[in-house]
Structure formats: structure tokens, C-alpha cells
Write a protein that binds this DNA or RNA. Structure first.
Lengths: 258, 258
DNA sequence: CAGTGGTCTAGACCACAGT
DNA sequence: CTGTGGTCTAGACCACTGT
């Protein structure tokens, strides 16, 4: 167990930080499938937390299917294939960097609220679940590219509101602070015209076509995927395009809406 | 909350007994979807257990998706019905059938010609290679959906002009007649406004946004891929949308044009 | 036997929602 | 303000595993 001190400022719960360290040891290969994880008592003593707190971290890994416990023996890493070399699914920030643009953002909303019905259903969460809403204008080389309105399940990233740096990459923060790695996303792409508000923020006229994205992102959680993020975006049609590599199966996903 | 005493003999954990009572109230209809469940403090007081024990019962219901909590408000019965959910991504065919559409095509060009520079480069063929050009209006229930202009390498499908049935699937013909199996396609998606000709064929006004597709399709040939088809398409934005499942690698292909 | 996870206690402070 | 859930503590007893 790494023994550098935990942050006790109350921004990110201690058990989340501990869980993150355990996850790091698994993804780095330090702890392999079948290996014995540090015991609750050991974590408690090493990191100076109560055993219940250590247990909360270990328990959540078991809930995620990443570990399993045996009474009297210990807790072991599940034989689940957690991909090494964990690269993040690309966020706007990473995408712009890769293309040599300088990404930036203007955050105009960051708050907790109750999930709208559409969001709750997409995230498979109960109606009125708590979500964190993050509205941002995305820019490349200081030129407006698109607007994103993201809803994140609060239960997956408690404390995000306090630790999120408005200029940082959301995906990077999700990984560094909460051990969440976005692995896959389902996306609906439509075309349309911008709302008056969107047109103003994007500095285009209302008759310019735009991309409309609806995306649900998933993090790997043991054997299954956990919906984490629901995003509605509007992107300028004159500055954005999509490149897809389609397989035969994927060609069939293209759909019609009346 | 029923208040008859809990069994403290250690055979069944107390929190399991509490959870069972809460579940009974839900399945019996006493607690309905959206209803406020007894608070952790209330359970703690009524049943004479510590709050952490009451919490453990409630928390496990939340983990199961049967309830959800909101800080400061309470814990509520979840509206999810485990059986009815959930929407699955529909394939093109399934969606057409579900909507009762009948697909058809109008061919308005089928001829051999010299490859335009752009096409030749995309297909990695020599300049002035011979290609077969196939222009089609695609319809669903006789309503125009999109226009496709395809260029096929003549050397890969000689005689296509003579054997192609205008109402048949192009890919099916390529397979049955020439043994070409389209395995993968690289596609660029842009938004725009239709040309005058396209708007007329699609029966929309020129200020309606459309999808613009540029696609290069490849057939498996031994261990490598052979470019076969280059397609430019214009699809009505009000009748078409795209569903993508993005992995990390796919997200990387998204690109910018300034 | 010592060490493990499973359960439980009786408090505590906090952030947040509604009054 | 009170009541809620979210987190955390410093203990405790238990059942179980291995030596």
C-alpha cells in the first residue's frame, strides 16, 4: 500500500482515495488476478483510518466485481481482465491535443441537481437520483467549437464539484480522483440548427447546420459496464467532422427516425 | 416499520432482517415507486439498532437498484421495473420493420467512367482508372431519405453494369457475383446544406441541414484490405440519425476541419 | 493459535434540503 | 432551524481459515 498521506480535506472521501490506490495497484500489474489484497486491518493501520473506512473501500471493489472476499482467508483480486495500459477514452481535451489545437473551456454551470427523467433512464438510475451537471463551452485555439451539457452520476464521483478544475479534462479527473476509466460510449448523432442561445455562444447564425450529439459513457466495472455520464452536445458544423471506422455489424446500426 | 423484535441470535444478520422487512413493504404495495422510505434514524430508533446497521440495510437496497437516496431528502423506492426495461440498440432492419418502412431505390446513373482525382486517391488506384458510377436515390415507404453516389473500381467487379439489379443490394451483388465481401469502411461525417439538385431530389428546402457522408469501403483480400468503393452521400437530417458505439480507438478517429 | 472478513455499536461532523 | 443521507471513528464480538 502506498503510504503517502491521504487528503483529509473532505473534498474526496477517504474511502474513494483508498479504492483508487487499490485500483492503481491492480491496473499497474502490482496486484494480479488471484492475488491477496491487503487486509482491512493492514489498510487501517498503514493509512491511519478506521477499519470501517478501509472496509468501505474494499467492499466497493467487491461490489464492482473487481475483488472477492472469503471469510477467514482474505480478499483477492478477481480474475477479470482489466486492461493494462489503461488509456482514457478520448475526451475533447485529448482530442484537441492530439490534433495540435490548444483546448480550453468556459464552465457556465457546475452544480448538483436531480436527474431529469431522460438522463435517469439513460444512466439506468432511479428517477431523481443525484447528478452533477456540468455545462461547458469548448474552444480550440480560443475559437468556439461546441457546447456540452454533461450529467454525471454523483454516486460514482462524490466530491467532483469540489475537486474539478474547470480547465482540466473531465475524463482525466474521473480517473485520477475516482478511478473511473471511460471505456466505451454509445452515441447518437443528429444534425439540426442551433437554438438562439447556442448560436450566440458558438458565434454562428441560427441557419448554420450543427451536429447534435447524445452520448452515454460507460466505465468498466468488473465484468460489466457502469453508465457514468450523459452528455448532450451541440457542435459547429463548419469546424467539426466525424471519422468512423465501420465494421459490417456497425453499418447496420445506422438508423432511421421519422 | 413493523416493530416486532428482531432475532438477535446471530443466525441471520440484523441488517438482512431489516432489509427483508423493507422489501416486504415494497412487494406488498405498502411502499410504492417514488415513496419515501423510513429514514435511517427512524429505523435505528424504532428497531433499536445502531444507525450504521440500519444504513447497511438501506444501502444494500440502493446497490440492488430497488431504492435510491438523495442527500438531505431521504431514500425513495425506485421506479425501475426489472422486467420491462430496456431499450436495445436497434439495427437498421429492425428499426425499419418496427416503423413499417419499405425500402426502395431509384437509380439515375449506372455507367463506366474515368475516376475523378479525389476518387482515385481514396481508392489508391492510378489516375484515370476505370470506375463504375452508381447514383441512387434511397427511399423508405417511397419517401426520399438520401442520395448516394458510389464509385466502384471496375477492375474489382468487371461486368457489374450488366448484372446489377437496380432494386437489389449492392453489397449482396458484389458478394454473389464477384466474391467481394465488404468488411470495413472508413467514413467521414459532416453536416451541411443540400445543393439545389439534392434538395430537389430529397424534396426539402435548401436551408434544411443534411448529413454529408464520404465513405471508402474495403473488401478482405487475403490478409490485407482492398479498397473497392468510394461513396458520397447526402441524407435528410430530419429523417436520419447515426448510432455509434465508440471505443477508445474509435474516439481517436474523430477529427477537426477548420 | 493468530489473522481474516462479517457484523454491530454509539457516538460524531458534515453538506444539503426544506421550513 | 430540523431532518436527511454521507462519511468516519475506535472500539467490539463473531465465524471461519490456516498453522
Amino acid at each position: 500500500m502506498q503510504s503517502f498521506p491521504l487528503e483529509r480535506d473532505g473534498l474526496v472521501p477517504v474511502y474513494v482515495q483508498i479504492r483508487k490506490r487499490l485500483l492503481d495497484r491492480i491496473t499497474s500489474g502490482d496486484l494480479k488476478a488471484g492475488d491477496l489484497m491487503p487486509s482491512e486491518q493492514e489498510i487501517s493501520g498503514t493509512l491511519g483510518v478506521s477499519r470501517m473506512t478501509a472496509r468501505q473501500a474494499v467492499k466497493s471493489l467487491c461490489d464492482w466485481g473487481i475483488a472477492y472476499s472469503m471469510r477467514g482467508k482474505g480478499t483477492f483480486v478477481s480474475p477479470v481482465k482489466l486492461e493494462k495500459n489503461f488509456r482514457q477514452a478520448q475526451s475533447f481535451t485529448e482530442e484537441m491535443n492530439a490534433l495540435g489545437f490548444r483546448p480550453s473551456s468556459q464552465v457556465f454551470a457546475l452544480k448538483a441537481e436531480r436527474a431529469p427523467t431522460e438522463v435517469a433512464e439513460a444512466l439506468k438510475a432511479g428517477r431523481n437520483s443525484e447528478v452533477i451537471r456540468l455545462d461547458r463551452l469548448r474552444l480550440a485555439n480560443s475559437k468556439p467549437m461546441g457546447i456540452e451539457c454533461a450529467y454525471l452520476l454523483h454516486s460514482m464521483c462524490p466530491g467532483l464539484i469540489h475537486v474539478f478544475d474547470p480547465q482540466a479534462s473531465l475524463y482525466e479527473t474521473l480517473w485520477k480522483q475516482f478511478g473511473l476509466s471511460i471505456a466505451v460510449a454509445d452515441e447518437i448523432v443528429e444534425v439540426g440548427l442551433p437554438s438562439a442561445a447556442a448560436a450566440s455562444l458558438l458565434r454562428i447564425s441560427r441557419n448554420k447546420p450543427v451536429f447534435l450529439f447524445t452520448r452515454v459513457s460507460y466505465a468498466r466495472r468488473g465484468h460489466s459496464m457502469q453508465a457514468v455520464e450523459y452528455v448532450k452536445s451541440t457542435y459547429r458544423g463548419d469546424r467539426y467532422k466525424i471519422a468512423n471506422r465501420l465494421t459490417r455489424a456497425k453499418l447496420k446500426l445506422a438508423g432511421i427516425s421519422v
